[in-house]
Structure formats: C-alpha cells, structure tokens
Design a protein around this nucleic acid. Structure first.
Lengths: 128, 128
DNA sequence: ATATTTGCAAATAATTTGCACGTAA
DNA sequence: TTACGTGCAAATTATTTGCAAATAT
C-alpha cells in the first residue's frame, strides 16, 4: 500500500471524492460505488483513503460521532474549513490571525505553538 | 442514567479526573482506578463519563486516533485549549477574535457562523 | 419501598489484517 | 515476471447494551 499504481478501484474512489466536495465516510464512499455498479470492497476503500491521505491528496476529519471522514483537499497552504451544518458544503478559510495568537500564547502562558486545528460550523449561503 | 445519585463509582471517577487535569480516555481512567484498588467496571466508567458530559461537568475531545478523551472542565464561558504535546497539560484560551472572524465569514462567503472548534498544540512552559 | 446505578458478559460497529488470487508495471 | 493491489473473511478495538443484583434516596 505504497506505490502509485493506477488501478480501477483507486480511480473509482477518487472519482467519488471528486464528484462530492464534502467530507465523506468510508461507508458513504462504498455506498456511492455500489450505486455506480463499481464493485470495490470496503477494505479497499479504507486502504485507498489511507493511501491518498499519506500522499497528501485527501484531508481526514473526525465527525461528531468520532467516525473518520475524508475530502479531496491538498493542504499545500495550511488553512481551515467552514462546514455547513445543513448540506455539508465546505469552504476554505485561511488563518491570518494566527501569528498574533501564537505571540499571545507565548506571552501569557509560555506556550510554544506548533500546530492548531480550527473548524467553523454554521449555514452556508445556499442553505439559509 | 440520569438522576444525580451520589455513588462510590461516580465519586471515584470524579476523583481521578480531579487529580489529573488533562484529557483521559475511559481506559486510562479505568487503569487509574485499578491502581487505586477501586473496582469499577469499564462500562460504568463510560456511563459515568457520559453522565458528567451531559451535566456539563466534563469536556470530551476526540484524540488523533479518534478515541474519546475527557477532562473536568465546565464550559460555562466558551473557550478553547492549548494542549502540550509532551505532557498533555491543558491551558484555557479565550476566543476574543471570534467576532471579527464571524463578520469576515459572513462578508466573504455568506456563511452564518454558529459554532466553532479550535485547538492549539505545542509545548507548555514546563516542558520546554 | 422503589427508582437508579452497577457489574458482567454479550452485542455492536468502525476499522484493520492475513492470505490467496488478480493486475499494473 | 514480479512487486503491488484487491477481495474476502476473520480479527481487533472502542463503545454500548440487556439484565439481574446492589445501592441511594
């Protein structure tokens, strides 16, 4: 589970992700494949998602229930997400204010910031 | 699993959380109880953590592996956490800049913000 | 007295893994 | 040809649940 072989399951899974720009669980992807008459095993879905994640093509997110969900999204430029609670639509959000926050954490807590997670939840423009 | 009965398991579990101001998994709490010769079943740990969470006494966090972890922390005033990668120590961080972020999301994306998660990771003062 | 909590063992559910077979290179 | 990927079924792991016995009120 390392080399970049181009296989049908990998293409089909990438196709589902490309068609649906929101976070999907392995089971949702598997269901989408079934509906498209693509016979791919659930284990292959898991293995392929891990492969894509390790390549940096896919972002993983733990949803409220603790399930892993995935979305095509190269994190080349570090950024965060505004996730619509209604439709799941995801917009990218940059983190401009982070420098100030890092400085404030260092000054008030002596805390050396080296990573962060931010998520914004709400309602997107088309769901209002 | 609702009423506020004061039972020994509940007191013992709260005791472990009080003694350890960082996020602990159900299994870690269970192990701590064993070491203190407190015989409490793992299911009771789970049920009690859910009870404390529903009361608002405990905050739940999904760690990197997707496991649930818990910490005593009434979210009376909404805030976030600076978590030390070395020792797990947690400091509270307020979210003062959120108003501006909400305004910016509304203006640029038409996104109506109604919730957010932020986590800051790094090294605390005593672990540097 | 009686409503609630607990312990235990069994059930779930998401995810991972071993292995024989299929496939891309 | 051969290293890698896939499918299947079984294993693993965190978490939940049913129920009879114990406990708090």
């Amino acid at each position: 589970m390392r080399a970049d072989y181009v296989t049908r399951p990998r293409e089909q899974i990438a196709g589902v992700l490309r068609a649906e720009p929101r976070f999907l669980s392995a089971a949702e992807i598997h269901r989408a494949l079934e509906q498209a008459s693509a016979r791919v095993s659930l284990s292959t879905v898991y293995r392929t998602l891990e492969y894509l994640r390790s390549k940096g093509d896919v972002t993983e997110r733990l949803d409220e229930a603790g399930e892993s969900t995935f979305m095509l999204c190269e994190p080349a430029h570090h950024h965060h997400h505004a996730i619509c609670r209604v439709c799941g639509r995801v917009d990218d959000v940059s983190c401009a204010a982070l420098g100030q926050i890092a400085e404030s954490l260092r000054a008030t807590l002596g805390f050396e910031l080296d990573g962060h997670n931010m998520e914004f939840l709400g309602t997107c423009r088309s769901c209002r």
